[in-house]
Computed example of a mutant assay.
Amino acid sequence: MRYLVWILRLIIFVVVLLFALKNTQPVDVSFFADHVIAGVPLIVVMLATFVLGALLGLLITAPAVMRRRREAAKLRRELARLEEKHRRPPAAQEPASAPETVAPLAPL
């Protein structure tokens, strides 16, 4: 299975590399307020867009991931506490006595 994953990674890498080599022509990048950067290779623009999108996606998912990690840590602590409680032998308790032995019932 490990070899299959590495073969798939290699195929994806080759496809992305060929795509990058085919898209090297220069393009003009226009920003707000008529600011233009001329002659930037298209692959650089696509790579920058990909990286910015990945960072934005990570920022959006970060709160949910942190929440899940806190919940998992809380559950692990609770599990450890319950396991410790289960391992500890119960304290010697007096045998429960019937109510009649404590105070005899009065006849009605």
Results as ranks from 00 to 15, higher is better:
I11C: 06
I43T: 05
V27A: 09
I37T: 14
K85E: 08
F19S: 01
T101R: 08
A72D: 12
L105T: 03
R88I: 10
L21H: 09
V45W: 01
R67L: 09
I37W: 12
E94F: 12
I12C: 06
L105I: 04
E78H: 06
V15Q: 05
V29Y: 13
A38K: 15
V51R: 02
L42Q: 13
R2T: 02
K22T: 05
A54S: 05
T101A: 05
G39Q: 10
V15E: 01
A80H: 04
E83P: 02
A106F: 09
V5T: 09
T61G: 00
K85H: 05
I60G: 00
A91N: 01
L59A: 07
S97W: 04
D28S: 10
R81C: 04
A33K: 15
L8R: 11
A98R: 12
P90S: 15
G53H: 11
R67T: 14
A73D: 10
A106Y: 07
K85L: 14
R70Y: 12
A73H: 04
R76Y: 08
L42C: 05
R2C: 01
P41N: 13
T49P: 00
R87F: 10
L105D: 04
R68K: 13
P104C: 05
H35E: 11
R69N: 14
D34G: 12
L105Y: 15
I7W: 06
L75V: 03
L18M: 13
M1I: 07
R81T: 04
R69P: 11
R2N: 05
V16C: 09
D28K: 06
L59I: 02
A73M: 03
L17A: 14
F50H: 06
P26I: 00
L10N: 06
L105E: 09
V65T: 14
R77H: 10
L52H: 08
P95G: 03
R70M: 09
A98V: 13
A54G: 00
P41K: 12
F32K: 14
R70F: 12
T101G: 07
A98Q: 07
P104I: 03
T61M: 07
V36C: 06
N23A: 04
V51Y: 00
V44M: 11
E84Q: 08
